[in-house]
Design a protein around this nucleic acid. Structure first.
Length: 138
DNA sequence: GCCAACGTTGGC
DNA sequence: GCCAACGTTGGC
């Protein structure tokens, strides 16, 4: 833990399958179902204490909250070729940040969440993380 | 629900 | 190792 080597990520989910509200109720969960090699590599790069934003990819497309990585990548018991990580609920954004807002933003329009539509686990810089928080705060 | 863009597969 | 064909994703 600690700020020095912490990375930041965005995790996509379909709220019908698993939403931020579900995570809030569960307090923590295993993040599974990633079936994309680049996304898997990103999962494997996660460290305990890394911060994640949760993005809803269906319905209103928006970033809705934050979570913390509590366990680094381990094989998915349902499919050992893939991996899960564990995360814990951290916060609900005061105001969700819409995909459209990201697209209009000078720097956020270039993050991989926007550019690489199909990547379900996206790295993000601290600067972009802060910019999103700023948008959520209003 | 459509379809463009992207990722994966498989034949060569 | 290339690339066409196919399947899937995700924005609209």
């Amino acid at each position: 833990m600690g700020p020095f080597f912490m990375s930041h990520w965005i995790l996509k989910t379909e709220p019908g399958t698993y939403s931020l509200d579900d995570l809030k109720k569960d307090r923590s969960t295993f993040w599974d179902g990633v079936r994309n090699y680049q996304a898997r590599n990103n999962l494997k790069s996660m460290k305990k204490g890394d911060q994640c934003m949760i993005y809803h990819s269906v319905g209103p497309k928006e970033i809705v909250g934050t979570a913390t990585v509590t366990k680094t990548a381990y094989p998915d018991p349902k499919d050992m070729d893939w991996v899960n990580v564990d995360i814990a609920f951290e916060s609900e954004l005061k105001k969700p940040v819409k995909l459209a807002e990201l697209k209009e933003h000078k720097t956020l329009k270039d993050i991989s969440l926007v550019r690489q539509g199909r990547l379900s686990v996206c790295p993000i810089t601290k600067g972009d993380w802060d910019a999103i928080l700023k948008l959520s705060n209003a």
